[in-house]
Amino acid sequence: MSYALIVAETRRGIFEERNLDSIGICALLGKETAILLPDGQYSFNEKLVDSIIRVKADEEVFLNPLNMTAIIEKVSEARGRPDLIVFTHSSSGAESAAYAAGLFGFPVITDVSGYDKERGIFFKSYYSDKLFGEFKTTGGATAVLTVRSGSFKEFAAEKAAAPREEVVEGITASDSRTFVEYVEEEKTDIDITKADFLLSVGRGVGNKDEIPAYEELAGLLKAVISGSRPVIDKMWLPKARQVGTSGKTVKPKVYLAMGISGAFQHIAGMKDADCIIAINKDAEAPIFQYAHYGIVADMHKVRDALKGVLKG
């Protein structure tokens, strides 16, 4: 039986919304779809899939590539090898996808954001969305994909019949990699998700000495300062100020992005802001595709000019 296997991503009991993109691409490909879930009760529209395969394993065991490959083997023994294995493009999804591809000798394409059905072509980002690569798999083996969130969910559609229920049991958790505990971010007094107006700085800021002048500008504008990954990685701003998938998802009234090129992981964290204003000296920066207003300019010059205006 030909089918697509979706590895659901759950995090502490929550069915992540980006699983809908995994379901969507399977619908777009016209595949019969089975979704794999760890132990627990998950709230989602079950009619979107043909089968639900419940794995008798805790979420932390399930989201471990060493165990996930064992689960996929069991599923393949029971119902035949899938044509397609789909993961979300996320920390756990990308980790298990690559490992599964390596172990089974399957082709893998990650961060897939488009599919051309007629040509059988998958689109994937290169150079932080400055280019896209058109890929196809060669040979007939099962393809492993990770899917970019927001790319395919509109293709997910309800099936005529309620999903069939299947169970996978007898998974022995690997002892070479084991879950110890979750580590929460340190609590801080600032919560950027509550701000109406964020002034966010990115890689373009160039060096740490420039940061205080942006903090001053944020103060004058009564905005809260935040940053993209490169600025946080360099410890120029604290982790609690990070906007993006590994940081915070924000929805301010205004998001003023200065020197942020717009890597997808950043966009995913701010695309729902009411108004996005991007300042970047690179006219081709991907962020201009998502912004409502764009300014092609040197961010430092705009900063200094704005400060001049505000200080009157």
Binding site: R11, S92, V180, Y182, V183, E185, T245, G247
Partner: peptide
């Protein structure tokens, strides 16, 4: 992981 969360593994 996501949203500032980390996982400790052995």
């Amino acid at each position: 992981l996501e949203g500032g969360l980390q996982e400790r593994v052995r």
